[in-house]
Design a protein around this nucleic acid. Structure first.
Lengths: 231, 231
DNA sequence: TTTTCTGTTGATTAATTCTTAATAATTATG
DNA sequence: CATAATTATTAAGAATTAATCAACAGAAAA
């Protein structure tokens, strides 16, 4: 089911770019160029999420947001031009779910749209996540940031934990060092790929019975690392 | 397949530095020294990624970026001299995917180029499907870099795997040693064609029940090698 | 401050890959 | 049919590349 996003902004070219990016990620879009129309369309079309600019003719974004909240709990993501408006946006009486200040990158925008859609789904159908991953005799407790081997707690640092968690969540899947740097270390982080090797080694030192003959975190030479998929 | 990067900058020595670094990591490069030419080349050559300086003669980087976005969604990485430009670069109205401020480290540059290329691919092919080629009792798991014969895992080196994968993907099709060198080893490779023979031999050693009477990878004398096409 | 965590670097070890050359098989030619 | 020429197979060693490991230094946390 394709999600439908209502874009509300009076600047045509902003709407266009938003539309372009949303379509690229296969969302359907609706448009409104003033507050009054926005309310009408939202009412009639029941979009899955609303992107709402603060500065609007006819009726400003704050008012639109407040009114929308009276009838529907569709996620609302507010677009603000200035930092100072942020407080107001996040104000409880408004009920916006998230905000993003201009200028923003397409990537950030899409990330927030997706995050809010996800959250909306979770609220309706609370996702019961398996908080403890079990792989062989290893237990990885996502919430407690704790790893046990055969019942024994193994102390890991944050980075080590994040790495083993990431690999274990998708075990069998091989990840290149570059991908791990991006996914585990974070998008904005651009370090040396050797860093991954060193962290893997430290992890093995703690996790494995014989670090030189790893059983959990394995190397695919020339490709990357992965969590053992058997059992 | 080698990725092609279009470099757009009016300073020759910046272009050279970029080119040097990209070539070192085996990217192919295209160059443009002004905005107008950049658009032409981008249009004609469809590069995989564009490195775009903000300050340009003929047409500034912002305009070039905006124009490019109208026709293609090639990742655009903007080069900016000053921090203040960053806001503008990331501005939604532009549609640039990423930016990097001068002066930049080669490492950061390469990391960003690779990250954006990877992301572009991910966008096209969202989730990796479990691609497993089956040929007779051989299973070739593309994602896991794994080959099984009658359920038994056969350990292959990366090159061996790439070769059998390539042949199996187009089984029946005969490839000359030259073609294999080009497709499996890479464009830039100018090695001895005997290298292919040796790799085939080692592959048979592991794959075949009787390496001297191969069943999977066959020789067409005077032509080349192919993967057995009969079921 | 002291301790712990992280990222970096370089040496060492291990594995892969390429090259060479001798040998075997096949095809062409007299 | 015999022999030469071509082409492929095989083995072995050298060169290259990748991964591991150890040690250090700066940053962050206690």
């Amino acid at each position: 089911m394709r999600k439908r996003i209502l874009i509300v902004d009076d600047e045509k070219n902003i709407v266009d770019i938003l539309k372009f990016n949303l379509k690229k990620e296969s969302f359907d879009t609706l448009e409104a160029y003033d507050g009054r129309t926005a309310l009408e369309i939202a009412e009639r079309e029941k979009p899955d999420l609303i992107l709402l600019d603060v500065m609007l003719p006819e009726m400003d974004g704050f008012t639109v947001c407040r009114k929308l909240r009276q009838t529907m709990q569709t996620p609302i993501l507010m677009l603000t031009a200035r930092e100072e408006e942020v407080d107001k946006v996040l104000g409880l009486e408004l009920g916006a779910d998230d905000y993003i200040t201009k200028p923003f990158s397409p990537r950030e925008l899409m990330a927030r749209v997706k995050a809010n859609l996800r959250r909306a789904v979770d609220d309706v159908v609370p996702q019961q996540k398996n908080e403890v991953l079990r792989c062989a005799d290893l237990e990885i407790d996502i919430n407690r940031y704790e790893v046990k081997r055969a019942g024994e707690i193994i102390e890991l640092t944050l980075r080590e934990f994040e790495l083993v968690k990431f690999l274990a969540l998708q075990r069998g899947q091989i990840f290149s060092r570059e991908t791990l740097l991006e996914k585990v270390w974070g998008y904005e982080y651009f370090g040396d790929v050797r860093t991954v090797d060193v962290t893997v080694r430290r992890l093995r030192e703690k996790l494995e019975r014989d670090p030189s003959k790893p059983v959990y975190i394995l190397t695919k030479r020339g490709v990357g690392y992965y969590f053992n998929s058997v059992k």
